[in-house]
Amino acid sequence: MSDRLMYHPADESLLAYAAGTLDEATSVLIATHLSLCPHCRAAVSAAESVGGEYLDRVEPSAAMKVSAADVLAMAEQGGEVARPAAPQACEIVADIADMADMPRPLRNYISDVGIKLKWRWMGPGVRYAQIAGDDASEKIGLLRIAPGTRLPRHGHTDEEYTMVLAGSYESASCRYRRGDVEWADAAVVHQPSAGREQECVCLVVTRGALKATGLFAPIIQPLMAI
């Protein structure tokens, strides 16, 4: 099947997403991938039913302080539980507004964080805009790579997830297309290059910094400070 995605997030990330213990940045990437991948949605719902099994089987050792009737009364008189309203329109900065097919979890998240994306020049043909996160935790951002651009060869100090939103890129003789996810860690050194057909836009979640390797590393390194 040609329309089926080839590269998926690691199963332990899907499990952690289902359990509700995954960090925020990676959750955004997973939810975005799930929008495009029926295969992983099924895996997550299997993992959620593991959670359901645990709930059904947990020893009910903690008694409730209220009765069913109390909760019914609250549910009926309280109106809606105060929850922040789901973001409606998304004001993503104009130059990616044409990515109308950006899946909603990501679109809503950017709008929710409420930042205006600032594109930073990362080298010829490469721009990066951080959405959220800091050095102490996971960072999530968007990477735009001009058609045919070859990124500097680089390693990672920690884990990195990359998901293609538009266009494609090739890395270690694998071609990643919309929805595909590449995982890399400290053991992986790669040199992705964008497909020639169109600009490649990726969602990137990183923990730790990227590490340039090779002859020009000292020159490239400062540019890659994602």
Binding site: D23, V28, A31, S35, P38, D101, R104, L106, Y109, D112
Partner: peptide, 22 residues
């Protein structure tokens, strides 16, 4: 997650125009 972690947890939305159905 909403209450304790104060974290956002995005979920896929089948009404999303970009959603790829089963």
């Amino acid at each position: 997650i909403d209450a304790i972690r104060k974290a956002r947890r995005p979920e896929f939305d089948p009404e999303d125009p970009a959603f790829v159905p089963d």
